[in-house]
Design a protein around this nucleic acid. Sequence first.
DNA 1: AGTATTAAATTAATACTGTCAACTTTATCC
DNA 2: GGATAAAGTTGACAGTATTAATTTAATACT
Lengths: 214, 214
Amino acid sequence: MARQSFDEREVEQRRAEILEAAMTLFEAGGQEAVSFRKVAAVLGCSYAAPYRYFPGKEALLTAMRAQAFRWMEREMLAAIDPAQPPRQRLRTLAEAFIRAGIERPQRYALMFFRLTEPESGPRSMELAAAKRDALDVCTRTVAAAQAAGDLKLSVDPLTASHLFWVGAHGLVSLEVAGQFVMGRSVEELVPQMVRTLMQGLEEQSAIVARRAAP
Amino acid sequence: MARQSFDEREVEQRRAEILEAAMTLFEAGGQEAVSFRKVAAVLGCSYAAPYRYFPGKEALLTAMRAQAFRWMEREMLAAIDPAQPPRQRLRTLAEAFIRAGIERPQRYALMFFRLTEPESGPRSMELAAAKRDALDVCTRTVAAAQAAGDLKLSVDPLTASHLFWVGAHGLVSLEVAGQFVMGRSVEELVPQMVRTLMQGLEEQSAIVARRAAP
DNA sequence: AGTATTAAATTAATACTGTCAACTTTATCC
DNA sequence: GGATAAAGTTGACAGTATTAATTTAATACT
């Protein structure tokens, strides 16, 4: 028999090279700067070669999205400071997410600004995993705060972390899409959102207690 | 001298026809189903004719966005029931926004899923106005609730309405982008988000009072 | 009425894009 | 060395946005 395929390592290596080239183009000029032809030009191969490794542009974008979610996860993990009290840690985490998104609007848009289409294939698996892992950082932090007794939630931790996620995403996505032009900056809104969510999620008795004995 | 231009009415009429054709295509197949060539085909003119009325695709999309915001404003206004107490009215408004967005994901994406680029030209003015008017519905409802003494805010009404807007948008945009695949539906999250925001935005003394004497 | 003027519309052309099919190269196994 | 099959290349098709050159047609003035 003849050679049947690259070593799995080689294939994965080539895929990574293509992905890297695509990411380079993306960082330089956003989503519309990425095309199979430009990617091929960067790699010095012909424009149809990448099709051997990604069945279409959507697959390439899916891989790029997964990478972006991994990046976001790292950003969040890097922001966690174990020295901080759990409550404060959650606040820091939210701020890190928001800052990261605002500083890299293109990447954020890649991750979140798209319509759902039926996902399938190995690339989508990886994307789903990356997404889950990023959200897990948030969920764990909420759970830790609750376990430490620093945060008394009126809902379960998973719901609470989802609501934090939703709030943070609302802020970033509106900012990135330029919907705050009404003379108001996100900077003012971020701490207010975080405070509002914390206060709104806490057991009301906890608030009373906190006010009575700070 | 010869004819210098269409009557302004005629020009605006033609523009409206083009916009309508574009919207028809959009409703049928989303953003990628809209092209100058298809619009022209629908209108029965040549593919470059629309350029007389919209300088480029971005201008056409801007006009479409304004229309979408006007639609959202109508949806919200239609949901307002003066018979309801102001507090409940706000809840209803949030739910109407969220429902509308989820039912028309393409339209919602058109409105919110895009990166900021320097806007200019008359079309952008109209878009900004439509956006402002839609948000104003929210702001007015919050202000009315506060004026009626039904809602005691710990922040100014404009900030409060912005936070409601952010929360609602967070929910819709994540849902529309298919980010809730982790086995949780928006339906559960919507009321929780609304309750959390309301509770978090209220004066803490008001909560205590509400608990003491419901 | 006839003609000059000029906006509106059309056509041709450029430069891209994603994707597929046919073809060539090339590395490995027997 | 020759067979084999994967990897890569090339050509082609059907789109896209956009611009420039050109044609059409309607008006205003002589």
